[in-house]
Amino acid sequence: MKKKIKSNLFYGLLLLPALVLFVLFFIIPVVQSTWLSFTDSYGMKSTYNFVAFDNYKEALRDLSFKKTINATTKYALLSVIFGNILSLVLALLLDSKLKFKNTLRAVFFIPNIMSLLVVGYIWSFVYTSVFPDIFTLTGIKNFTILGNKTLVVPALAVVGIWNAAGYYMVIYIAALQGISEDLMEAARIDGAGFYHLLRYIRLPLIAPTIFTCLILSVAAHMKVFELPYTMTSGGPVGMSTTMVYKIYTTAFNANRNGYAAAQSMILFIIIASITLVLNYIMKKREEKL
């Protein structure tokens, strides 16, 4: 019994520093913000009233907020699916025998080193200054990518993928390197080609990693803010206004802290549900094995 207490104390103390910081700088602020979502807190005013679920009701009626859910989902779907495919392809390419392997890995990882704000600035330069020059050079009629209602979200997704691909690539490479070489060799001797190795050995074995990357990238891309902020101001006609960008303008331009907090709670619920569903699928799959 005494030993048990001692061991609990040991593990508890190990956790303590992380826990203290976590409670101070995350739990307390988040709980406070959640409370704000039930109030009419406005701008810098120090007093506010409790309004129960009014903010939530308004959000569910607010067409322009619903529109941001669409834009965000579209952006996240594109970035998550194509981003993960690209990262996986890169990982497969760079996990095999190849000259300059390390240099290439660095090349793909470098975009991830820069903060998203910087990335946004660089790409708005690319989209607004470089592409027009290329179009003129090649004689294509000048048209604007960021001003096109259909193209703007994919254009932002390209940037998101460019930024994140290297990160997930590294995780996939790590998983691929974890597959035992003996197993692969045995399969090769049995006459398995590249496709068979991929379909029946590599992909199934790294499935847990794929799910992890899916969860991480869903959470990251659903929260996109810097790209519309630096590149489009949410336009044209609100097509690229993502949820966090909207939350930001609600809180800081319209000054409605309470409403913004309610919008954030809805975003949190959406991300959490997607994650739960992914988790559920993953668990189901593991049970089958």
């Binding site: 701008g43 949410g234 006609v237 609600t250 331009n253 319209a254």
Partner: peptide, 19 residues
């Protein structure tokens, strides 16, 4: 009021772009 100007800012271009 800023709630109004935020909305104005958000949608004024919808009119000129025929949305």
């Amino acid at each position: 009021r800023s709630v109004f100007t935020d909305k104005l800012w958000e949608i004024y271009s919808y009119y000129m772009l025929d949305e």
